[in-house]
């Protein structure tokens, strides 16, 4: 157990879940500009961790570090250490493809591929070679869609284009697409920001259900959403991690003045 773990145990007082991912002194530079300052944050297994904070505070940047999506940005430079099950994900020995298979991602704007619903979900298992037969692939697609709570809505039109679905359905399709790869961690970057309230509620429900099997990190703009879906919350401001702790404590009795101000709507 690390110090953070011990501290966590003390503060929550219950049998804390083990730590799945861990960031130590994570800093990110975009060219000359520094976007993240020495962030230490743990992600606990089978819990939802919410990252909150005003725009441009670095929460999405941190999220994208967890599965090295920042690699796709030429000017981004990451320092510090991030581990997945104790392995440094920025270790040159670690393969980024394998990492992303284990740490899936759902994006802000639903981005289904311009393919059929079936093909969207089957894409991940196909490229990773997870299914040995057509029937096994069918099984993965069906169970993923079911877990994403989408199966009943689309079961009759699996071969229609994924871009034809409504926004909320598209986002759940993207979640199903991520689940189909059997990741261990799912990262969600403001998954509901482009959705209407009803679709948002549906996705939030889904996130809560998914917690049984996956570790989830979610970036959100909405404090209510963080309060509703997460067990733990981390507050970012201007690239610094301000405060981190159990969600109920954060929303009732935060340690930091800035957190207090933010959740009460004084800024952000």
């Amino acid at each position: 157990m690390t110090e953070a773990g011990v501290e966590q145990k003390l503060s929550s007082g219950t049998n804390a879940p083990s730590i799945k991912m861990k960031g130590e002194k994570v800093s990110v530079h975009y060219g000359e500009k520094r976007a993240l300052f020495d962030v230490d944050l743990d992600v606990r297994e089978n819990q939802v961790t919410a990252l909150i904070g005003p725009s441009g505070c670095g929460k999405s940047t941190f999220l994208r570090c967890l599965n090295r999506m920042n690699d796709t940005i030429d000017i981004a430079r990451v320092s510090g250490k991030i581990t997945l099950d104790g392995e440094d994900v920025y270790d040159p020995k670690i393969d980024v493809v394998e990492l992303r298979a284990r740490v899936g991602m759902v994006f802000q704007k639903p981005n289904p591929f311009p393919k059929s619903i079936y093909e969207n979900v089957a894409y991940g298992p196909r490229i990773h070679g997870l299914a040995r037969s057509k029937s096994e692939l069918d099984g993965i697609v069906e169970s993923s869609l079911k877990k994403a709570g989408l199966f009943n809505e689309v079961k009759d039109r699996l071969l229609e284009s994924g871009t034809g679905l409504s926004g909320g359905q598209q986002q759940r399709l993207c979640i199903a697409r991520a689940i189909a790869v059997s990741p261990e961690v799912i990262l969600m970057d403001e998954p509901c920001s482009a959705l209407d309230p009803i679709a948002t509620a549906r996705v939030e429900e889904l996130i809560d259900e998914l917690r049984q099997n996956y570790t989830i990190v979610i970036v959100t703009h909405s404090m209510q959403q963080a309060a509703r879906v997460s067990q733990r919350t981390a507050m970012f401001h201007l690239g610094y991690l301000v405060e981190e702790g159990a969600t109920d404590k954060m929303f009732t009795n935060p340690d930091d003045k800035r957190t207090q101000d933010y959740i009460t709507g004084r800024f952000g």
Partner: peptide
């Protein structure tokens, strides 16, 4: 800490599906 990982994931296959020899 690694010993704390549950060895079975979502669809009933080992989590290490992405890390085993076949992968």
């Amino acid at each position: 800490m690694t010993d704390a990982i549950s060895s079975f994931g979502a669809v009933g296959r080992p989590v290490s599906i992405h890390t085993d020899g076949a992968a």
